[in-house]
Design a protein around this nucleic acid. Structure first.
Lengths: 369, 369
DNA sequence: TTTAGCACTCAGTAAAAAAGAGTGCTAAAA
DNA sequence: TTTTAGCACTCTTTTTTACTGAGTGCTAAA
């Protein structure tokens, strides 16, 4: 009952899987728990199936290998460990890792060194984009796995300034300054050719009217105006309404995106040695879709998430685990960050590291405003 | 003397290597040339060392294996082929490929299918960025290797519009519209805090004065003005000069960049099976530096370039070949594109494909203006 | 100059044998 | 009842041995 259970302030949700059995209420006595923990720690460290003898030695439980073998049989029946073949030791299953991560793990605070490195590398002065890459790269660097950051959603986008420039034949370049200092540009297509002056006027109109408003709100307002005032207003206004309609049209579905670094680190893991699996994984990284879905789940969960092996539901991540934590500013979750690595990873170190990184990113982002 | 030598209009430069010997003036009689060609074609097709018997069969030269063995000994002495071990056939060396590519190759025009696919996938309507990725992706798709495009240098950047917005504490957001419809934004740091009105005035001044000019010219003009008029002009002008100086400061060294797709295709090649080499290669891709240097060389060469194996001078590309061609608009070379693949690639198909793609990209870019 | 013949080399494969790790089971000890 | 020592057994891993076949280099004859 003492040092086994995680008893510090770090918390994270148990990933709820859709399991038919109402299991996970697996009852393990202290001894079995201790042995499972030892086994996993040993396996994570050594990377080879753990036998009863080794376990007898480093569990600290003064038991004979024979006794331990008996326990192993129980654990195997529960599906927490498995053995590659008769005369090999045991390796943890995903389910075993799950128990470990949920209730056996000894979470240590990150080392002084890690902390210092983290602080050093997260630079307030950088642009958000660069900040995100450096966070991702710090994560991958410190864990020797892949680091990933789901970049902030723009669910509130305040318009600061709007500008139009005519291009050739019915195309207009719109330049938006949003969220104080972020620039977006969009090309829109119009039915008629506007002159620079006309566009200027439209921009002026929209700027005075909507500066400071949420972009989506603008679109809704504009749409209403179109209905209510219709042809009654002057031509300049109509231009403005027309333009605004087209500019903000693209806004509703802002595609999420992530920054991924250190993928190549994953090539070294013997668990992913199969070149074909590796290719599939890398293809998923470039394809982005699946990974985005997963990160989106993490985002929605609003708490630390851990997917172990096939838990993620994506085949390509079959031999991988994903550890993520949301980062927030003013209690508002902006995105998630984390690492992707082999199922056999050092959770005891990675979990607090990801957690801390998320918190520090929040702090850094906070300082920027 | 007939069908052996490349005799169509497609031309490309021989990559000049720094070799101490004044070699490459290697004299090969017709028979040896023919055999080398046959050997390489066979090896590229089958992927296995080619023996004298096989060569006797498909060279079409009605010679006995024994005779061919004699020739092979000569070719081996010249360093054009080598044998992995005593009882294996021969494989071409880089030097052998070099000869092949320079003077033995039978360059076929791209197939109808390839041509159609190329035409279909290069869409004029896309943004330049997206056009570049789709070119790269077409290249990788059609060759099953990695496609790469060095994106256009902006060596002439005409200023169309300049805008300033104050941010917090001495930081100003500059928005530049250049080259008609391209938007750049830069954050600059100033010693004093300007008001929005001041900045507006400065922007107006600069816009009227420099709209249409080359950005670097602007900087030079401004620098001159600073010296000549010094404190004699009014405050608004000084602001303008000050701002322009800082904005265009970043311009001198526009970092080159490339788009790379289909890297994962390279994982399948047995020549690159070594996971460690593969990692190094992928690291070079993310690091970008070396690849950029190489592409820059290609760019400077102003003609089709082929680097075979270690010729590139980069260790990571040791087992790779790089085939590039410059693309141009109005006779002005804008960048290069090409493929990266295993040394053992089908040059006869790849070379004209890369060449054609470059030409088509030029055409497409031309249509956009 | 070309070719047939031949001895030789060496990777690759297969089969057999030996070593070693770890298990499950049983029966005795605690 | 729980724990443990002992032991036969299983299965991977490593080593050894042998064999096959592709392809060579060389020599001597055509």
């Amino acid at each position: 009952m003492n040092g086994l259970v995680c008893n510090n302030e770090l918390t994270y949700d148990v990933k709820k899987r859709n399991q038919t059995q109402a299991d996970n209420g697996i009852e393990l006595n202290e001894r079995a728990r201790r042995l499972l923990k030892s086994l996993i720690e040993n396996y994570v460290r050594e990377g080879m199936p753990v036998g009863s003898k080794a376990l007898a030695k480093d569990s600290g439980l003064d038991l004979s290998p024979a006794t331990i073998r008996n326990v192993m049989i129980d654990l195997e029946k529960l599906g927490l460990v498995s053995s590659p073949h008769t005369s090999a030791g045991r390796i943890p299953t995903s389910k075993g890792y799950r128990i470990f991560v949920d209730s056996l793990i000894t979470v240590k605070a990150p080392s002084e060194g890690d902390l210092a490195q983290l602080r050093a590398e997260l630079n307030v002065t950088e642009s958000v984009d660069r900040l995100m890459s450096s966070v991702s790269s710090v994560l991958s660097g410190m864990t020797s796995m892949a680091g990933v950051v789901l970049v902030p959603r723009r669910d509130y986008t305040s318009l600061r300034r709007l500008e139009f420039l005519p291009l050739s034949e019915g195309r207009v370049l719109a330049i938006l300054v949003v969220n104080d200092h972020e620039v977006q540009n969009r090309v829109i297509h119009t039915s008629k050719n506007y002159t620079e002056a006309e566009l200027q006027q439209a921009a002026n109109y929209l700027n005075t009217l909507f500066a400071g408003s949420d972009i989506r709100q603008v679109r809704r307002s504009v749409l209403q105006d179109m209905v209510s005032v219709k042809n009654s207003v002057n031509l300049a206004m109509q231009t403005a309404i027309d333009m605004a309609d087209r500019v903000f049209d693209q806004d509703e579905n802002d595609p999420a995106d992530y920054v991924l670094t250190g993928q190549t680190n994953l090539m070294h893991f013997s668990d992913l040695a199969d070149i074909d699996k590796l290719k599939q994984l890398f293809d998923a990284f470039t394809e982005k879709r699946d990974i985005l879905h997963l990160l989106d789940e993490c985002y929605s969960a609003q708490s630390m998430q851990i997917y172990i092996g096939e838990e993620s539901g994506y085949q390509v991540l079959g031999d991988c685990s994903v550890v993520t934590a949301p980062y927030e500013v003013d209690g508002q979750i902006l995105g998630v960050l984390g690492v992707i690595g082999p199922t056999r990873m050092n959770y005891e170190r990675v979990i607090p590291l990801v957690d801390l990184t998320a918190k520090m990113l929040g702090t850094v982002l906070n300082q920027r405003d």
